[in-house]
């Protein structure tokens, strides 16, 4: 009953403000270069080409990840190097790349 709505604490946030916030974040990203079609495949191809010039790596052991967050977007490229001996207990492929 509408009469009782007056005494109820209003629910927060209402869906319209949620819609606005989601749109603002989404469109801020879609308007940037990061959302260009084929950006990731092209980047991956070029990066692979450069690395293959110097090292023999397994194409399947390359992982690219793009994370879009409100304040900061990150591009993570993980390449597993075949002959790098893990130092200490650290077998992380990313660490291997940093050493190389």
């Amino acid at each position: 009953m509408a009469l009782f709505d007056w005494f109820r604490v209003p629910r927060q946030p209402r869906s319209a403000s949620l819609a606005k916030e989601r749109l603002q974040i989404l469109l801020a990203h879609e308007r940037t270069e990061l959302s260009r079609p084929n950006l990731l495949p092209e980047l991956q191809r070029d990066i692979m080409e450069v690395i293959l010039r110097h090292l023999e790596i397994d194409r399947d052991k390359v992982v690219m990840k793009l994370d879009r967050a409100p304040d900061l977007s990150t591009l993570e490229i993980n390449i597993e190097l075949p002959h790098a001996t893990p130092r200490r207990n650290d077998a992380e492929p990313k660490a291997a790349l940093q050493r190389a």
């Binding site: 209402r14 869906s15 319209a16 606005k20």
Partner: peptide, 16 residues
């Protein structure tokens, strides 16, 4: 629905 906060306001859409 705008008054109830369940629909984007004109100002919201214009801002975006």
């Amino acid at each position: 629905r705008v008054d109830r906060g369940d629909m984007l306001k004109v100002e919201d859409v214009l801002e975006i």
